[in-house]
Design a protein around this nucleic acid. Sequence first.
DNA 1: GTCTATAGCGGGATAGAC
DNA 2: GTCTATCCCGCTATAGAC
Lengths: 218, 218
Amino acid sequence: MDVPDWNPRRVAAVEAALPEGVAPPGTRGRILHAGLVLFAETGFHGTSIRAIAQHVGINSATLYAHYPSKEQVLADLVLIGHREMADRLTTAVEALPADAAAQVRLAALVRAHVLLHAEFPLLATVTNGELHALEPALARPALVLRADCRRLLIEVLERGVKDGAFRVADLVLTATAIGAIGMHVASWFGPDQPATGDRVAEVYVDLALRMAGFRDAP
Amino acid sequence: MDVPDWNPRRVAAVEAALPEGVAPPGTRGRILHAGLVLFAETGFHGTSIRAIAQHVGINSATLYAHYPSKEQVLADLVLIGHREMADRLTTAVEALPADAAAQVRLAALVRAHVLLHAEFPLLATVTNGELHALEPALARPALVLRADCRRLLIEVLERGVKDGAFRVADLVLTATAIGAIGMHVASWFGPDQPATGDRVAEVYVDLALRMAGFRDAP
DNA sequence: GTCTATAGCGGGATAGAC
DNA sequence: GTCTATCCCGCTATAGAC
């Protein structure tokens, strides 16, 4: 029986990591880090300012010397998460030769997407799962980046269909489903898991190519 | 630009429906209904007892004549959601002839899964997204049902591989990804959406068969 | 920047009248 | 079953000393 009797976690992963160079130095960075862990575990509304402060080892009042509000801590995390995704997906496609085949482009995109979610599952959980707790003005920059990424994927699929490399029943639904399998990785990938991130990416790239109707040997 | 300037919703759907026959009659049922709407929108921790009561049109104290705690309202919803899923998936497979081909079995399973999430997006959002807010003892029955459904899907894939109908790189990862695309439907399907639930199910069944490596004409 | 102390509010839940 | 009234607690955020 693989049903756990301990508290069901929202995220399987325990390591709480942020991409390199994005966390502010000193206490401010440690607050961001604590917010990452706690928001991922119990959500924005389930996490108190006091819990964040305790996790950092400071008084709750000290937090306000670094962030104007709890919401701003979340807003920073959500923006970092979306920026990292947009950067990686854009880079993955732009690193390819301009005449790269559609299946190569899709593979690069899905690989980057899956690896991102396997490498930063907590960040992805907060980024995707707690965005709704933000005021519209704070959420908007992230939503713009998300739309960019979505367009990137749709364009790759569209190009493949035009080239004859792909066959899809519905462009938007297929893109949505390919996005879904990558996002979902964040909820289960972790150290208790036998597969490495690279292996998961490899399998998921294969799945995405199948979903796009790519035939290696037609 | 398709980035909304209104508050990003957690669920696109607005109709708040529970499966027939599962909601208790009278005030107790209306409380459950209000919990469904509010937990889906702002989460368990983001929803107050007073907000639930106001949504029903009763005093907050009256709620305790029907439920012992806010957590029990959530526990009932989570169990209802998981029971409905287990019932539908089991029925979908058992309704088939015993010698039905693997692709037929997988299609029935995915179709039922997608339609469930398209028909009850709020319930699915609460069921899957707020389960972590429950004490282990309250979450356990749902987790057992979830494990049953997972096994059902894996068995169908396994059988197809043995029959030669399917080719998969990794049984568990493929099952996980097929589950992910169905679950994800709850977050975007809604009345603003052009596709019908049936159409989405049709496309997603095709995607799942592709993911399983099924070849219509080998 | 960090602390102690606290304001001011809203939370879950209960008591007891009707 | 539903209400009014309230308890008690924890919440976000601020004031002001060091």
